[in-house]
Amino acid sequence: MPTEKAVAHHWRRFSERYGLIGSRCTSCKHYFYPTSIICPKCRRKGKIEEFKFSGKGNIFSYTTIRIAPEGFEKYTPYVVAIVELEEGAMVVSQVVDCSPDDVSIGMPVESTFRKIREEGKSGLILYGFKFRPLK
C-alpha cells in the first residue's frame, strides 16, 4: 500500500516527469536529467538553471525487460532504453508503440506522455514521459 510519504515523493517529481524538465549548466553548457543542483563538471563554479528538453533524441542503448519489477508486470516484454537527447543529456525510459524487435541502437525517438505506473487500484496514477519511434 502506498504511504503518505510516497505521495509527497512522487509529487515532487511531477513537473520534471510530466514536462521532461532537467537542468543545464550555463558555464559549461552541459545538460542533466533529472534536475541537479550542482554541475558535476564545474562544481562550485557552475551555474545551474532549469531546462525543458525538446523530447527528441536517439537510443544510446536498450534492454528488453521480461521479468518486471512490481507495478510493471502487465507491460512485459517491454523495452527500457538510455535515450541520448538532442541536447546531450541521457535519460532512462520505456520505449513504447513498437515491439522489442523493432528497437535498435541509434534509432530516433520522441517523448510521449503516458501512465508510468499505478499504485494499485485505489492509489495514485503516476504519469510521465516515455519515448516512441519518431514519426
Binding site: Y18, K115, I125, Y127
Partner: peptide
C-alpha cells in the same frame, strides 16, 4: 487505448 494510455495522457498529447 494501450495499457499506459488514458483520458489524461491522450488529452495531454
Amino acid at each position: 487505448p494501450n495499457m499506459d494510455e488514458d483520458c489524461a495522457t491522450m488529452a495531454v498529447e
